[in-house]
């Protein structure tokens, strides 16, 4: 018996520990709402890049609309699109565009995207590498690293140390956008990779732990241990800053999307509109991304996701 008891206690602890990343059930009295008969549930899951915005907004939205309960889960862009396509989700989160393959697959669901913000994917390295002088790389160099043609930091002006190349799960939005930039193909292979990670948290943690890693990460997730390097184009170095993304200079930019089956309707529409409202856009900004309702950006939103 003691074994079983402890299992429950520790399982509870684990849920608390992982609550932020794996399962967010937000809102005051979420449980009572779950039991209430007349509550409407909005099921949301997908990209861990879009997740911080939506979970913050969901919390606010629920305090205003006590009859609505919102569940927000992680999983990745592919999971968000797949879940919406198969109607297991009301809103999918995607930090990339829906591929034509996915569009065909879920043709009957008539997938619809709503852009709620802009972001960029930076090429990131361990802080040790950045400090040793690797401040920027060209597209060619990053590509060669991912292809396994460049395997030592020495070859690009860094210390004599092997490169730990970190790839992501194939369906992840960040990977699609990054590979599209490097190789012109969102599902390009990366034979030089040593590790494969999933969520932004996981990738961030693995790069921070290493002293010689390279990876791809949304700019909002860059910190002191995981440093975004500049992209070299000719003699010019474009740093991964919000300013450069806003001005359209940084080459690996993307839209942050909400995916719905058809046009959003009912409560879902209310929630989507809330995210697009002036107030909702604040959550985009505080999460470290670029709101679409700032005048400088409206022109770009209509365009494609990478320049």
């Amino acid at each position: 018996m003691p074994a079983r008891f402890s299992r429950k206690v520790i399982l509870g602890l684990a849920l608390v520990l992982f609550g932020t990343g794996v399962f967010l059930q937000i809102g005051p009295g979420g449980v009572t709402h779950a039991l209430a008969q007349d509550s409407t549930v909005i099921r949301i899951a997908g990209s861990t890049t879009v997740l911080p915005i939506v979970s913050r907004a969901a919390e606010q939205f629920q305090t205003r609309n006590s009859s609505v309960r919102i569940t927000v889960n992680a999983g990745g862009s592919g999971v968000g699109i797949h879940g919406t396509g198969t109607r297991r989700l009301d809103v999918g989160l995607a930090s990339r565009e829906i591929t034509s393959k996915e569009k065909n697959r879920y043709a009957s669901s008539r997938l619809n995207t709503t852009v709620i913000g802009r972001d960029a994917v930076a090429c990131v390295v361990s802080s040790e590498i950045f400090d040793s002088g690797v401040r920027s790389l060209s597209r060619q160099q990053i590509g060669d690293i991912y292809l396994g043609k460049i395997t030592n930091w020495k070859q690009v002006g860094g210390p004599d140390r092997k490169i730990i190349v970190i790839d992501k799960e194939a369906h992840r939005g960040t990977r699609h956008v990054f590979m599209k930039y490097l190789f012109g193909k969102s599902n390009a292979r990366a034979p030089g990779a040593r590790l494969v990670t999933g969520s932004n948290n996981e990738e961030q943690a693995k790069i921070a732990q290493s002293d010689s890693a390279i990876g791809m990460l949304s700019i909002a997730w860059i910190n002191n241990d995981v440093v975004g390097i500049g992209i070299r184009e000719g003699h010019q170095v474009i740093k991964p800053t919000l300013k450069n993304v806003r001005a359209g200079r940084f080459p690996i930019a993307r839209n942050l999307n909400l995916v719905t089956a058809g046009q959003p309707r009912g409560v879902v529409k209310q929630f989507v509109n809330y995210l697009l409202s002036k107030e909702g856009q604040v959550f985009v900004e505080v999460s470290g991304y670029i709101p679409i309702r700032s005048p400088q950006l409206m022109s770009q939103v209509a365009g494609s996701h990478s320049k």
């Binding site: 074994a3 079983r4 402890s6 299992r7 520790i10 399982l11 602890l13 684990a14 520990l17 992982f18 140390r161 092997k162 730990i164 040593r194 590790l195 943690a205 732990q209 290493s210 010689s212 890693a213």
Partner: peptide, 27 residues
């Protein structure tokens, strides 16, 4: 009775770093 996730968290936080340092690996 300790579930796998706890070991996983310990593994990612402690064991991977420890294995790297003890065996002199790059990762």
């Amino acid at each position: 009775g300790v579930p796998g996730i706890i070991y996983g968290l310990m593994g990612i936080a402690v064991l991977t770093v420890w294995v790297r340092d003890v065996f002199g690996l790059i990762d």
